[in-house]
Computed example of a mutant assay.
Amino acid sequence: MIGLLKRAIAHYAKTTGRGTSLYKKFCKPDGYEWAQHMGRWGGLHSVGKGAWINLGCNITDPAMLRLGDNVGLSDCTIFGHDGIVHVINARDGTKLDSVGGVDIRANSFVGHGAIVMPRVTIGPDSVVAAGAVVLRDVPPGMVVGGNPARVICTMETLVKNIKERCAEYPWMSLIENRDGLFDPELEPKLQAMRAEYFFGEEQHNG
């Protein structure tokens, strides 16, 4: 019964754009589904192919956000405006505006807790590390972190480091033969092998 209700809510939200909050709360769509929904009904300027958006991502001004292909947004915050302008207008009697588009180009990722301010272009092929505060453009192919965000290394260096770590993991054959990004039947074995590798008695004594 619950499954039928969830499917009905999902269908209604996807086809009409209504009931989005119910769809998000009860159906918990994955990042790819949520990006498609936001692209069609959430007011985003545009969403590229294969993009994904975590449900915890906060996008304050959807119309000011453009996502390229294969862009990933973790539980980050994307601003399209500067709230301080309202204080300035009230203080000085002015009628100023302070908005700006955020353009996240293909194959880029924004990590958990990161904040991206207006008038910023990220990438392509770039990474914003968890907790970073991005105030200016991120050059193509770079990894940035910190507050304010600064270049840490190149994407090539990041990939090289990840490959070197993977070469030592005893579960990589399972990953290489896995069908897709997640296999619920394989996950318990992967978790057990990872826990043993990082926290097991042999690893601890070694």
Rank of each mutant, 00 (worst) to 15 (best):
A167V: 02
P139Q: 09
W52K: 04
G131W: 00
S74L: 08
R66I: 05
K95V: 08
P124K: 03
S126E: 00
N54V: 04
R66M: 10
R150I: 00
V159M: 06
D179L: 15
M64P: 09
M142A: 13
P184F: 00
K49M: 14
D97H: 14
V127K: 00
K95H: 12
A130M: 12
A13P: 04
C57S: 14
W41C: 08
A13E: 02
N161F: 10
W34T: 02
V144A: 01
N177L: 12
T94M: 10
A114C: 09
D75I: 09
I9R: 03
K6S: 03
G111T: 01
R105G: 01
E202T: 12
C153I: 02
T15Q: 14
H204N: 14
S173H: 15
M193R: 08
P184E: 03
I9F: 03
G50C: 06
S126W: 00
T20F: 07
K25Y: 11
L5D: 07
S98G: 13
L186V: 14
Y32R: 14
D69E: 13
G83N: 10
G3W: 04
G80A: 04
V127T: 02
P184I: 05
W41G: 04
E196V: 07
L135W: 02
T20Q: 12
A10D: 13
D125M: 11
D179I: 15
S74A: 15
E202D: 12
A90Y: 12
I162L: 12
S126N: 03
V143R: 00
P188D: 08
G131E: 03
L67N: 06
P29H: 04
L5S: 11
V87W: 15
G123V: 00
E196G: 03
H45V: 05
Y32L: 14
L174E: 10
A106N: 15
K14W: 11
H11E: 13
D61T: 14
E202R: 11
R165P: 01
E196N: 13
D69F: 03
G68F: 01
Q191W: 13
D183V: 12
L44P: 05
W171Q: 10
M1W: 10
G206I: 07
A195M: 12
I53G: 01
